[in-house]
């Protein structure tokens, strides 16, 4: 019906409008990175390029880099360039930051997708089995797995997996990117830690929903058990999970950084770690901006899927959970 569509686009518009102050805040913080970072960027860049540090050269460099003038003026100057897609130039490579980041973004997205998939493939069976076989061996096994997943740091888990599956058994490549086989270990490392939380949350949610009257009513109508679990229970148990996913997205993004480092995965996380060592502020600025944008957009998508899962919110205009 037309008003549903209108309602949704109005809602989207409203949500995008609230993003504007968020993004302005993000841009200010990112901009201040340069200001707060120790050392004079102009000096650093001159040193990197083996140019003699004369006062004139410094002055010239500052002017070219937009580092002279009062703070707000420099911010506006920086913002104008940012909006035209110019994120500055990497101190270390001299390449435009946007190009450096974009060329590595596919690798990171691939890893994140692999990690999410691994997370789902571990969390769902584990959580569902634990709920259905509540307080049996399967439940305890799932609890134990979750405990390990939650407490072992991912760099350690990554090294463990490398030594077991790649070095000793020689089943999978140790590091690098290329085939699906290269993706397997990093995805597993990334997904396992995240899966732990979700498996337990899913178990708790399912156990709660399975107690509810409508599940009993569905069974009283002779609805097949696969539908009772897979549709009646799961759909309702997913609603709180989706919210948690939006909140824990930071873990996933931070996770890619660590896992990329462990597996020498050529993504933006690894680029950022190198940039930290090189004091390559423009790259770090670009990275921070990218992560903020991803975070905000994914949370928007989470909100929308929440509405999709719960028709009371989608159609009723009720904003309660």
């Amino acid at each position: 019906m037309w008003y549903r569509g209108a309602f949704l686009s109005y809602y989207l518009l409203k949500r995008f409008a609230t993003l504007i102050p968020v993004m302005i805040g993000v841009s200010i913080i990112t901009f201040l990175l340069v200001e707060l970072a120790p050392g004079d960027p102009a000096e650093i860049i001159l040193a990197k390029r083996d140019i003699e540090l004369t006062p004139q050269a410094l002055e010239e460099a500052r002017r070219l880099m937009g580092l002279d003038g009062p703070l707000y003026e420099r911010y506006l100057h920086w913002l104008r360039r940012l909006l035209s897609g110019d994120l500055g130039v990497s101190y270390s490579s001299g390449e435009p930051v946007a190009r450096e980041i974009l060329s590595r973004l596919p690798a990171t997205l691939e890893l994140a997708a692999g990690g999410l998939l691994a997370m789902l493939l571990i969390a769902f069976p584990l959580g569902i089995a634990a709920a259905l076989y509540n307080r049996t061996f399967i439940d305890h096994f799932s609890r134990f797995t979750a405990l390990i997943g939650a407490s072992v740091p991912s760099f350690y888990l990554g090294l463990l997996l490398i030594s077991m599956l790649a070095v000793h058994l020689d089943w999978l490549p140790v590091m690098g990117r290329g085939t699906i086989r290269h993706l397997l270990l990093p995805s597993l490392t990334l997904g396992f830690g995240l899966a732990a939380t979700y498996a337990r949350l899913l178990r708790a949610g399912l156990l709660e929903v399975l107690q509810l009257e409508y599940v009993r009513a569905a069974r009283a109508r002779g609805v097949r058990e696969t539908l009772v679990i897979g549709r009646h229970a799961l759909k309702n148990a997913l609603i709180p999970l989706v919210t948690v996913f939006g909140l824990s997205l930071g873990n996933l993004l931070g996770g890619t950084m660590v896992v990329e480092q462990v597996f020498a995965w050529p993504g933006v996380g690894r680029l950022a770690v190198q940039a930290i060592f090189n004091r390559d502020i423009p790259i770090l600025q670009g990275y921070a901006l990218l992560m903020a944008v991803i975070y905000v957009l994914v949370n928007l998508a989470v909100d929308l899927s929440y509405r999709y899962l719960d028709p009371r919110i989608r159609l009723g205009g009720k904003e309660v959970g």
């Binding site: 509810l212 009257e213 409508y214 009993r216 009513a217 569905a218 009283a220 549709r231 009646h232 759909k235 309702n236 609603i239 899962l309 719960d310 028709p311 009371r312």
Partner: peptide, 12 residues
Amino acid sequence: FQDPLAALNPVI
């Protein structure tokens, strides 16, 4: 059942 709101699944 007694309470139709509880006996019907809210999201289907």
